[in-house]
Simulated scan of single mutants.
Amino acid sequence: MYTPPAFREDDPATLHAMMRETRLATLVTATAEGLLATPLPLFLDDTEGANGVLYGHVAKANPQWKAPPLAEALVIFPGPEAYISPSWYASKQEHGKVVPTWNYAAVHAYGWPEFFEDEDHLREIVTRLTDLHERPRAEPWSVADAPEAFVRAQLKGIVGVRLPIARLEGKRKMSQNRPEADREGVAAGLRASPREGDREVGAMIPTARR
């Protein structure tokens, strides 16, 4: 990922937090058959290894897990993003030398994926993923709520993914390279947007007020 110094994020705790905020990542592997990619929910266990380990699962019918990777896999964690209009820059009024851009945050995790079919391990992964996303609900659903025979049948249709993270790249492009007046204009423009995602990015713009 191309990351100029002004936008680079290296703090492990911050990178892990950005990854946890992403509900759906994309696993990309380079194989003899070409590039294969699967969107999937993952959870991070930061107690394992130097950079943590990612866990999830794919459908057994998905050919990606059967195709040996030729290099490290890439897992993409997209964060908040928003279009930035040059009309929001104070410098537009000064000299007009401004262009549109995009603000966004992203983390790229690299490592060699391991796939497994052990039923007990799969049940643990599915349970942890389910609990992670059900926890905020008033009445969380649990894997144990489904009939045991049904759960076991469902587990036979998936393959687990374990990816020890070898390295991480983080980028947070939030107008840090613009003058303060331009950042203020961008933040104000995004806060006024009807799109919730734009307003989320607006709150991330570094200004003298935050």
Rank of each mutant, 00 (worst) to 15 (best):
K156A: 15
K92Y: 00
I165R: 00
L42V: 06
P147Y: 05
V107A: 03
L168Q: 00
E124I: 10
G56H: 01
D118L: 14
V151C: 09
W65A: 00
A61D: 09
A73K: 03
E119T: 14
R167E: 05
Y83C: 01
E72G: 03
P63T: 06
F150N: 08
A144E: 15
D46A: 15
A106E: 10
A59E: 08
Q93M: 13
P78E: 03
W112S: 13
V126M: 10
I158E: 02
E169V: 14
H133M: 13
V126S: 03
L44I: 11
D118R: 12
W102S: 08
V159Q: 02
F43E: 04
W102F: 11
V159F: 05
T101P: 01
S85L: 02
W141K: 12
V75M: 03
P78C: 08
E148H: 07
T101M: 06
G79M: 04
D118Y: 13
P41G: 09
Y104V: 08
D45V: 11
G160D: 08
V99S: 09
D46G: 10
Y104E: 06
L122T: 09
A82C: 12
K97P: 05
D131P: 03
L44N: 01
D46M: 11
W88K: 00
H108A: 08
A71S: 15
N62Q: 03
F116R: 06
A166H: 02
K92H: 10
H121P: 10
L54E: 00
H95V: 08
P136T: 08
G157S: 09
V151T: 12
E148K: 10
Y55G: 00
E119M: 14
D120M: 13
E134D: 07
P41N: 10
P100V: 09
L163N: 00
V161R: 07
V98C: 06
A166F: 01
R152G: 10
E72K: 01
H108P: 05
V75Y: 00
A90S: 07
Y104P: 04
G111L: 04
F150P: 04
E114G: 11
H95T: 10
N51Q: 14
G157I: 05
E139R: 14
L155V: 03
P86Q: 03
I76Y: 07
A149K: 13
L122G: 09
Y55T: 04
K92D: 01
V98E: 04
L74R: 01
G52P: 01
P136D: 09
A67N: 04
P69I: 05
Y110K: 09
G170V: 03
E114R: 14
V151R: 07
I165A: 01
Q154F: 04
Y55C: 02
E81R: 13
S91Y: 09
G79R: 02
T47S: 15
Y104L: 06
Y89A: 00
G160P: 06
L70G: 12
G160Q: 02
N62S: 05
E117S: 15
Y83Q: 04
A146F: 14
L54G: 00
R128F: 03
V143W: 11
